[in-house]
Amino acid sequence: MNQLTQAEQEVFALAIDGHSISEIQNLLHKEESTIKNQRKSILKKLNTESMTEAVQQFQNLHQEPSKKLIRIS
């Protein structure tokens, strides 16, 4: 996420939380075209085809590692 601008990070964080373009627009008080352009830039930078794919990729990278059972002899 470091390659994203601050504004793109805000948009992406809201997308991760499941917000639609219109909800993001209202929350950030930005034009729809601005949000769409930022989403387009996010997809390009993350090399993904859709926001759903980008969110899934992010979630896969940031999942808590599964806790391993420690066997004590």
Rank of each mutant, 00 (worst) to 15 (best):
E23I: 11
M1D: 15
K68L: 12
S20G: 03
H29T: 05
S33Y: 09
L14K: 04
G18D: 09
Q9H: 12
Q63F: 05
R71I: 12
I70F: 03
A7I: 09
E10P: 03
S50K: 06
N47F: 06
E32A: 01
S20I: 00
I21G: 03
F58V: 00
L4N: 05
E10M: 15
K30P: 13
L4Y: 08
H19L: 15
E23W: 08
K44N: 07
K67S: 15
L28S: 09
S33P: 02
K44E: 11
P65N: 08
K30I: 09
M51T: 01
L28E: 13
I24E: 15
T5Y: 10
G18T: 12
F12V: 05
A13H: 10
Q59C: 03
Q3D: 14
Q63A: 01
K36I: 05
S50D: 01
L28P: 12
H62S: 02
A15S: 13
N26M: 06
L43P: 02
Q57N: 11
D17F: 10
L4W: 14
I35T: 08
H19I: 07
V55M: 00
N47C: 01
Q3I: 09
S66G: 02
H29N: 09
Q9I: 15
K40F: 11
K44V: 10
M1C: 07
H19N: 15
F58P: 00
T52I: 01
F58E: 01
N2F: 08
R39V: 04
A13W: 06
I24N: 15
